[in-house]
């Protein structure tokens, strides 16, 4: 395994009276796509939110490129080159597509060359450039949310369910975009419920259950072993396709 870009060691997160993450140990290798898998409610989204500092870890350490970011504010973590796409996409509905993108370029104005590249990856963004983001379809909103994270080069992307509820054609567009990110040398940690997408995109896989990591290894190894999938995630692979 290549050197890690992100490491979580014994991370605990409490939200009100609930103890959600109960000692998460997780390593995200550099320049690879790591899939964070598991049933609903096992702590995948909480893991991403804890890394981003939206919820403060009550125990353990989170390191990004060797630097302890456990207690850093969200904005500082983002400025270290972490792009985050939340499960609800986090689109600013009252702003136009253009304004969403301009805002996402927090180091200055968007780079025109990178913007052109994003238009080729996500053509609807160009079509609706001056339209209000709230009027986009679900798939277009998801494209905008991912494009927003991609508007500047990041070293790590945390993306929560990028294909949730999307049509197969849009899922293919998403997958292509995420592969391009990986090809550019970025590292990705993706929460994904669609095992077919995970299998197609992932280099590494981490499976969570009950607030802990219960398995970590090569995605290909998990994809090969139907018994392991069923044991870890209750998946019936044939039914999943």
């Amino acid at each position: 395994m290549s050197d890690p870009i992100l490491t979580l060691a014994g991370v605990h997160t409490n939200i009100a009276q609930y103890h959600i993450l109960q000692g998460v140990d997780l390593v995200v290798p550099r320049a690879q796509v790591t899939m964070l898998l598991g049933r609903n409610g096992v702590g995948k989204t909480t893991t991403l939110r804890t890394v981003m500092g939206h919820w403060r870890a009550s125990g353990g350490t989170i390191t990004l490129d060797g630097m302890d970011i456990t207690q850093l504010p969200t904005s500082a973590i983002a400025r270290m080159g972490v792009g985050y796409v939340p499960e609800n996409m986090g689109i600013f509905s009252d702003l136009t597509v253009e304004e969403n993108m301009v805002l996402a370029a927090c180091r200055g104005k968007p780079d025109p060359a990178r913007l052109d590249w994003l238009f080729t990856v996500f053509p609807p963004l160009k079509t609706f450039w001056r339209g209000q983001a709230g009027t986009l379809s679900g798939g277009q909103k998801q494209m905008l949310s991912i494009a927003r994270a991609m508007i500047e080069e990041r070293r790590l992307y945390l993306i929560d369910e990028p294909t949730k509820g999307l049509a197969p054609a849009i899922i293919a567009t998403m997958a292509r975009a995420l592969r391009e990110l990986k090809d550019q040398g970025s590292s990705l940690l993706l929460v994904e419920q669609n095992f077919a997408v995970a299998r197609a995109l992932g280099d590494a896989a981490v499976v969570m259950d009950d607030g802990r990591v219960i398995w970590a290894g090569e995605m290909a190894e998990l994809a090969r072993d139907a018994g392991l999938q069923e044991r870890l995630m209750g998946l019936n692979v044939q039914a999943e396709g």
Binding site: G90, F92, V102
Partner: peptide, 24 residues
Amino acid sequence: TKVGLIVRAGVENGEMVEALGYRL
């Protein structure tokens, strides 16, 4: 203006504005 954009976006979803790197 960019400050105005941050304010408008912050009114709608402050958490996301911070995730984009701004100190809300």
